[in-house]
Amino acid sequence: MTAGIDLDQPHAQAIRSDEDVVRVRQLVRTVAVAAKLSLVDQTKLVTAASELARNTLVYGGGGGVEVATVDNGRRRGVRIIFADSGPGIADLNLALTDGYTTGGGLGLGLSGARRLVDEFDIDTGVGKGTRITVIKWAR
């Protein structure tokens, strides 16, 4: 599956079901391998993607993801954008607190995912949906 993936193109995947979350993991893994992230960094990025894709599905009511390689002139990395048009997050600080959950989970999804990536940006507001961008750089 790794062979032949086009790193110059962003890859999109809808998140509408449980199986789509699995597909997001597989897509991120493929791009991370192709971008030559180390095994630990691949594992961290795929784990973060799994948490965020699940959030998109469970809290955002579904949405989509775009996976692309990026280059800052010094290093190559993988960027993932998660977007949904769900209710948005009212209290972002609270949502980023370890252990806080409104969905009956462990409350580690958002806060844990942020620790696993190098860059984490979140754009959300009540009624605005949520857009989360993460980047993991190759070392």
Partner: peptide, 14 residues
């Protein structure tokens, strides 16, 4: 458990 999985789990906070 793979080593990379163990490292990630700890950082995730699990």
């Amino acid at each position: 458990m793979r080593p990379a999985v163990a490292i990630t789990l700890v950082e995730l906070g699990l």
